[in-house]
Amino acid sequence: MKAKVLLSLILLCGGLAAPTARAGDAASAVSPVPAACELPSYLLTSESQLPKVAEAVKAGRPLDILVIGSRSTTIPSSESSSYPARMEVILKEKLPPSEVVRVSVEIQSKKTAEETASTFVKLMEAKTPTLVIWQTGTVDAIRSIDPDEFRGAVTEGVVALQKAGADVVLMNLQYSPRTETMISAQPFLDNMRVVAQEHDIPLFDRFAIMRQWNDQGQFDLFSPSRGPELAKQVHDCLGRALAQFVIDAAHLEPAQQQN
């Protein structure tokens, strides 16, 4: 028994020591980002990989990214400031100039994961993206869909996207402190994590990221302001984080910057 306790302690210490070392390396590698966007590196890394993205970039083929989302994918009346558009700009900056990056957005507003997933076969016939970023969960949480059904729907969707030959990144809900007492996000966050683990695909933890910003005081997400400024800044940071996340998961960093 003692041995077991000891073993877990050793693992624990190892686990705590390793990431700090990694964080140090990563910090020096990223290009300057606005202070408001700063995040601990573990929120931007994933163990799962994006082999098709890596392959496409290596072969010099264009990188087609499809963002499937809902109303929180965009900012009303300022499309070009939304996170997919910001991600596109940052990716173009970071990847070699010869690389063609095209980002398209498919908004399925007020649709649950199940309803959205049912459109994937047709959608993927029409577009043949290298990478699909599927942002989902909010509508399901609002309607308090059975979390098991939700997990089934996300699994189905992910499988359909993979079958169509794309890499997949899952993106979870926004952190929304105002509605925290009204929307129960946790089961949906948990189930998305499970699906990502089961299918070995990267999960972009939008919820944890936004909560980090709010907790650290980088953004005041309680703000009732009606203007689009806050939304623009948050989306800018999300776009940057997402670009970094994709680059990291596909191991696209230039050789000298790698660990």
Binding site: I75, I142, S176, M182, I183, L221, P224, G227
Partner: peptide, 26 residues
């Protein structure tokens, strides 16, 4: 009490970042 709270938020809070989450008020 919950109804009172949610009605208040529904009428006062219009941050464009969270238009989707406001669907809870439906």
């Amino acid at each position: 009490i919950f109804l009172a709270e949610i009605s208040y938020v529904a009428t006062r809070f219009e941050n464009p970042l969270y238009t989707e989450e406001m669907g809870i008020m439906d």
